[in-house]
Amino acid sequence: MEPADISFFGLFWEASLLVKTVMLLLLSMSVASWAMIFHRSNALKQANDASKRFEDRFWSGIDLSKLYKESESRKNNIQGMELIFHSGFKEYVRIHNTNQENTDAIMDGSYRAMRVALSREVDELEVNLNNLATIGSISPYIGLFGTVWGIMSSFIALGAVQQATLAMVAPGIAEALIATAMGLFAAIPAVIAYNRFSNQVMRIENNYANFMEEFSSILHRQSLAKRTQD
């Protein structure tokens, strides 16, 4: 190979079939990870914005029954904190209408409904995080495998000639090292995104949990007040 051919594409075309396969695999993993990064970033931003809008509405002093009817009218399009509210208040009303005297049963049923909704919402927020973690952890090793194989092939070919020079072995080593570089190129953004998104999901989950506790307290006071009136 002439020195002029020592470029990324030149080295790629001169690489062995296995090293080419490793490079293409790493490239596809990098593309997939960036697609997941953009999608997850957008999803978490939407979840944060939706929570802020609903919190402002919830603490504005609006009647809970009215707020529930608003959520019920578009129940197929609600998410996050609003869905937790909708699930809890729906179960609160259902049990209250059938067992008005048992405050504990009302609160337990409402709390369980909100807990299930919370768990499902967190699962939605964590979509593809495991895939990012997997790409971040295995990409360097896949790249390293391609590098080891490429260097091994270069030295085997070098052993077949009588006079070895650096110019003969340099292109083979260079193409092998590209596999390691591509592995790091795929892994680093995936690891950074995974850590960042995991932290965001944890904060959103804590926000949901705090709202659930506050809303449960409100329902408990409301249930006791109705029981006293009855």
Rank of each mutant, 00 (worst) to 15 (best):
E55L: 09
G80W: 13
K66T: 04
S51A: 08
I78H: 11
S71M: 01
R40F: 15
A43R: 03
R53M: 06
G109P: 11
S73Y: 05
R40E: 14
T21M: 11
K75G: 07
D49E: 10
M29K: 01
L17A: 12
D108G: 14
E82T: 05
S87P: 12
E121T: 03
F54E: 01
M114T: 04
T98L: 09
L18S: 13
E124K: 06
N102A: 12
N48V: 09
A105P: 00
F85Y: 07
E101R: 03
A15S: 14
E126Q: 02
S71N: 02
L129P: 12
V93D: 06
F58T: 06
N131R: 11
T103F: 05
L118V: 01
A113S: 09
R112M: 04
W34N: 04
A35N: 01
Q100T: 08
V22C: 05
H96R: 08
F38I: 11
E121F: 09
L83R: 13
M29H: 01
D49M: 08
S41E: 07
T21F: 11
L25T: 05
W34T: 01
S30E: 04
Q79G: 00
N99W: 00
Q100A: 14
K52I: 12
E121P: 09
H96A: 07
L44E: 03
I84H: 01
Y92R: 06
T103S: 04
E55A: 04
Q100K: 15
V31K: 05
E72L: 06
I106P: 00
L18H: 08
L24Y: 11
M23T: 03
L83W: 05
L132M: 14
F58A: 15
A32T: 08
K69L: 11
D123E: 06
V31F: 11
S71P: 09
R112H: 06
L44Q: 00
L24K: 09
V31Y: 07
S87T: 10
L27Y: 14
N97F: 09
L118H: 02
G10P: 04
V127Q: 15
L24S: 14
D56G: 11
R40M: 15
A35W: 07
E82L: 07
V122D: 08
N99I: 00
L129T: 09
N42C: 07
N97L: 10
F89N: 02
Q100E: 14
L132Q: 04
E70S: 01
K90H: 05
M23Q: 08
N128R: 14
L67T: 02
R94Y: 06
L67Q: 07
